[in-house]
Computed example of a mutant assay.
Amino acid sequence: MTELLDRAEDPARMIRMIILEMEETLVELRASAARSIADAKEMKRAIGRLDEIQISWTDKAELALSKDRDDLAKQALIERQKAADMADGLRAEMDQIHQVLKSYEADIAKLQNKLREARGRQNSIAARLESAVARAKAREMMHGARTLDAFSKFEVLERRADFAEGRAEALGFTSLEDQIHELKAAEKVDAELEAMKAALAARNK
């Protein structure tokens, strides 16, 4: 089994195949045990019938003796012995079947334990494989070329945004000359405003 797993391209698939084979073997063992149990029951019924036949031949032999028919009694005892021999033969076969059933029982128990162990290991291996794949994806995401390329593009975009924001701020700046010009213009407006107020006051008087 270990060599098969070592050579397998897909160990998980090989484990599933082994478990399937074990399950099929377990079904076959149970079917064989069921047939043996059925055979034993049939033999038990046959032995019961042969025991009844022996009792019947015993009664017949006693009847023949009571009638002084030793010849008939002897024949009855011969028939009784045949039935007894057949019953003994069936009992011997039943003993063998019981031994086989014990063997089946032990094999089934061992195979069930192995199957439970295999299923447990299968689940454990599946969980480990899933975890390993998830970790590999996470590391690829953190350190992979696509992620690094994306972050390098982020940096380029951030630099572009900084530049655009700088231009917008720069457009709002005014030179010293512009500021002085604005002061002069404001001074002229203030003078005109005062002149208008004075003219308006004079007219009102």
Rank of each mutant, 00 (worst) to 15 (best):
110 K>N: 11
1 M>N: 05
125 I>C: 07
170 A>P: 05
202 A>F: 12
33 A>T: 03
86 M>T: 00
98 H>F: 03
87 A>N: 01
73 A>Q: 03
176 L>A: 15
55 I>T: 04
83 A>N: 04
134 A>D: 07
142 M>T: 10
185 A>K: 14
121 R>H: 12
69 R>T: 03
125 I>H: 10
63 L>K: 09
59 D>P: 02
126 A>M: 09
94 M>D: 00
121 R>N: 14
126 A>G: 08
90 L>N: 01
180 I>C: 07
57 W>C: 07
62 E>S: 01
89 G>I: 00
14 M>V: 06
189 V>L: 12
157 L>E: 10
190 D>E: 12
13 R>W: 09
66 S>P: 09
36 S>T: 08
17 M>S: 15
199 A>T: 11
80 R>A: 08
137 K>P: 02
187 E>F: 14
109 A>P: 04
11 P>Y: 01
160 R>D: 12
46 A>E: 00
146 R>K: 15
111 L>P: 02
92 A>Q: 09
7 R>L: 14
42 E>V: 02
169 E>P: 03
200 L>R: 14
187 E>L: 14
86 M>S: 02
101 L>E: 00
96 Q>T: 03
64 A>G: 01
65 L>Y: 02
154 F>I: 11
112 Q>V: 10
139 R>P: 08
154 F>D: 12
132 A>G: 06
67 K>P: 02
187 E>V: 11
41 K>I: 00
76 A>K: 01
131 S>A: 13
53 I>V: 13
124 S>E: 14
143 H>F: 15
115 L>V: 08
106 A>G: 07
199 A>W: 12
122 Q>P: 01
177 E>M: 11
33 A>K: 13
42 E>P: 02
84 A>N: 03
